[in-house]
């Protein structure tokens, strides 16, 4: 039974992380999968969301911190919306000079913004507390739920150990539900959008931007909308992460790896398909977790094992590109065409 509790706890942790990645993958799907925008700075928008939310909801700077700003202790929902807003604004800055050009320029600019965000996080201690990052970021409804479960456990001292342990972790179950609800709501919104006339235009841009422009569509503003929307969703993902982890620092958002794994998730799941994005997140996160178990049995150091796992994910990407570029769930063929 103790093993069962251990497995359950792991599954909850796994699903919260995979669900958060699912949010990022949905954001990338609107940018890349539907509009063809090549964003390789996902980690930047993700970090931006996490830090914004921490600044809005977190505690004021304490005596031993280098930070002098932020910590407004506002409710979680404000942090979530603030995260979306800030990520969206930064996306406008990246998109404005690049979206009229070949998509390579956007790719380069997104690497640049992710790197710049990382430098700001490391260097601007007054805002970010530098390499130390934020601690004790409040989790929504933590006191209420944890208090209730503690009170219940105090009132029922004779529960079997495994039930006791499960109830003691009830907050994690709550947070899993929260992540899944956010993911599901975003999924529904994305599905609606993709099927709307707006969605038809952005997919037409992906297929053939010149032809779409000739039909009188102002492609730049559609591309900008898709970029900003995707970035806002990534910001929401960052916020969800920050309030669960409760501790964030620049190393939580490694520039390429944070971005790269989301790409592999979307490509494996199927670019252009929202269900595929979510499926890919759980599948790749499952593979990633699996390689963790696998490398434990190999005679390598911890850093070597970490490298080996990333190499495996890189190989997975190349294998998909070579043999199944459409992913597990290819986008549905939409028969209607642009008027």
């Amino acid at each position: 039974m103790e093993q069962f509790v251990g497995i359950m706890n792991y599954i909850v942790f796994f699903a919260i992380t995979a669900g958060t990645y699912g949010i990022l993958a949905l954001g990338l799907n609107i940018q890349w999968g539907n509009t063809g925008l090549f964003n390789i700075g996902i980690a930047g928008f993700y970090a931006l969301g996490a830090y914004t939310s921490a600044l809005i909801c977190g505690l004021p700077p304490s005596a031993w911190e280098g930070r002098t700003f932020g910590g407004f202790q506002l409710p979680f929902i404000v942090g979530l919306l603030g995260a979306a807003a800030v990520s969206g604004i930064v996306a406008i800055i990246v998109g404005a000079p690049t979206l009229r050009l070949r998509t390579d320029y956007l790719a380069i600019a997104t690497i640049g913004i992710a790197e710049t965000i990382r430098l700001v996080l490391n260097n601007e201690s007054w805002l970010t507390n530098g390499v130390w990052g934020f601690q004790q970021i409040p989790s929504p409804l933590y006191k209420t739920i944890h208090g209730a479960s503690s009170a219940y456990l105090n009132g029922h001292p004779n529960l079997p150990m495994w039930i006791h342990d499960l109830i003691a972790r009830s907050y994690d179950w709550f947070y899993l539900a929260l992540v899944l609800v956010v993911l599901f709501i975003l999924y529904l919104i994305m599905e609606r959008l993709v099927r709307s006339p707006w969605g038809r235009v952005i997919r037409a841009i992906r297929e053939d931007e010149d032809a779409t422009a000739m039909l009188g569509k102002h492609t730049f503003s559609y591309k900008m909308q898709a970029l900003v929307l995707g970035a806002m969703i990534m910001g929401i993902g960052g916020s969800m992460y920050a309030h669960y982890a409760r501790f964030i620092s620049p190393v939580s958002f490694k520039p390429l790896y944070g971005t790269f794994i989301v790409w592999v998730m979307l490509i494996l799941g199927g670019s252009g398909n929202n269900k595929g994005a979510i499926l890919g997140s759980f599948a790749v996160w499952g593979i990633w977790a699996g390689t963790d178990f696998l490398t434990r049995y190999l005679p390598f150091s911890a850093t070597q094992s970490a490298s080996l796992r990333i190499i495996l994910i890189a190989v997975l990407l190349e294998v998909i590109l070579l043999w199944r570029p459409q992913g597990l769930l290819p986008p549905k063929k939409h028969l209607f065409t642009l008027k």
Binding site: D104, W263, I267, I310, L317
Partner: peptide, 27 residues
């Protein structure tokens, strides 16, 4: 092998190569 798939697939593949190579060196 990916040349026929177009420039964006190549760009994506190069990102995989980038991460793979770097981690081979790190390994």
């Amino acid at each position: 092998r990916l040349r026929r798939s177009g420039p964006i697939i190549l760009m994506m593949s190069s990102i995989g190569v980038s991460l793979g190579l770097r981690n081979i060196l790190q390994f």
